[in-house]
Amino acid sequence: MAEKKKLILNCDPGTDDSLCIVMGLMHPDIELLAVTAESGNLTSDKSSINALKIMELMGRSDVPVARGMLHPLVRPHPSDPYSHGQDGLGNHFFPEPKLKVVDKHAALVIIDEVKKYPGEVTILCTAPLTNVALAFMLAPEIIPMVKEVYHLGGSYGVTHYAFSNATGDNPMSEWNVYVDPEAADIVYGSGVKLTTIGLDVAFNPEWVNILPETLAKLEKVGSTSARYALEIIDYVDRNNSLPDLFNNGPIDTVSMCTVICPEIIKTKEINVAIDTSDSQLTRGMTIVDCRNHFMWDNLHKIQTAYTIDSALYNRVFFEAITGLKYDEV
């Protein structure tokens, strides 16, 4: 058996983030080292409690949850126009958790785990990059020790959903980058091996959906995690921005599935800059320079997803939620 992939999940649960925690706990190929709670969909005081609620739902107390920054590096925290429900978990109203967050800041947890397993730790960020940027600033020596970073973030103009589904509070930006563009700029420019999955792919209703066949299998399994996933998918489906379209894919799960099975997506290198100005129109925009001539050669060179295997996404999603083989159910 292949060695498990060591993972830190930096997230802001959030409905779709909460499924990523479930998947990280359930999938046999993943060793979830820690969950670091970010301020994004909710501020980290609330998102860390939500992470603990999911731990208790899953009956797990072995994975530490750390609280991160309460607000972006240099800006106030904006409020999210997209509803994750009153509790941030699709109105599940789980009981207050008995588990506690660890007595260490999220950024320090990231630093210590990376140093404990140099070259082995993958960081998945389904939230703004505040905690990761802070860790990179506090301990730049860990940057070459991180195996790779995946970020569910940005809009790259690969498909028109990049902007028609823009989630930041202006026409051109994605929420996770919009909330803390300075943090994104630091991580994107850090030299760490980085793959981004933008709205182009993750919020593409033609590509990212949980298919009826998968839903039926989840019903059949009926475990705690399967039932929770069905409820979140239903919540996403009822609250999506395109009520006339079948569009139930929990966005963040695309990135968790990619960590588990990188072949799900295809990526290409892009030259990108983050707009950290105070421009109302373009703050947080991930600006791709694709000019034929006079291209700026000093921008961040990163990998971004341009397509996804929808069927494989469904298989990996199911297997990560249930811990079972897709074809055996």
Binding site: F163, N165, P171, D275, S279, M285
Partner: peptide, 12 residues
């Protein structure tokens, strides 16, 4: 970075 960009708001 975006000076002179004509930002089309194509959001749903």
């Amino acid at each position: 970075l975006c000076r002179g960009m004509t930002v089309l708001d194509g959001r749903h």
